[in-house]
Amino acid sequence: MPAKAVIRKEEWDSRLHEVPISKEDLNRLVMDYLVIEGFKGAAEEFSQEANLAPTVDFESIESRMIIRQALQRGDVEDAITRVNDLNPEILDTNAALYFRLQQQKLIEYIRAGRIADALQFAQEELAPRGEESPEFLAELERTMSLLAFENATNAPPAIADLLSPAQRMKTAGEVNAAILDSLSQGKEVKLVGLLKLLCWGESLLEEKAEFPKVHIHVDSRKKTLS
């Protein structure tokens, strides 16, 4: 293993200085975040304050958010209706997504303790779909095994996770991405891409060179970069 190259702070700082990036570029990254994450009001204000042309119809942000909120509070039926109002093709052409929504609906029945409804829904709606695909079937089985535990907290994590808010967020995220896709809008938040690129690049470079690292202090009172 060759000796690591050492890049001193001054040298690194001057490299940072040379990176071509403008406020306008960063504004667009921020706008992308606001739009995709559904901060409609903020996106509107930002479009004004930063003089950025809107990349999407702001109303579509709103309807996406209503759908997301419906899923996050467990109202799957409402979400499905709204998605179909927005564009019926989204669910028609995306069997996996539709299955995911129905699975979520089943989870909500179970969460609410409506065992009879859950069973009926699973047998009538989900079982036929489980026959279509082994993946669907496996997911259906996983969901049904929630019923095997009187208290979900006793279930193994892989099963109990279905009742977690993260599962709702995951479903909501998939629906969000599908809607964005149907609007020909990017669905990955670019800032997330930036963070991933940073993690990837920094850890790879760590193996080859010594250089000043960057840390975001999220849980200190003030954010600092060191």
């Binding site: 190259a5 940072l16 990036i21 800032l191 690049g201 920094e202 790879l204 970069l225």
Partner: peptide, 27 residues
């Protein structure tokens, strides 16, 4: 106690510098 450069900008610059350096190192 806030940074003179927005953290977001520093992150971008830092990431770009890392990638450039990786390219120079033959990655």
């Amino acid at each position: 106690g806030r940074p003179a450069r927005p953290a977001l900008e520093t992150l971008y610059r830092h990431t770009s510098a890392c990638i450039t350096q990786l390219g120079a190192l033959g990655e």
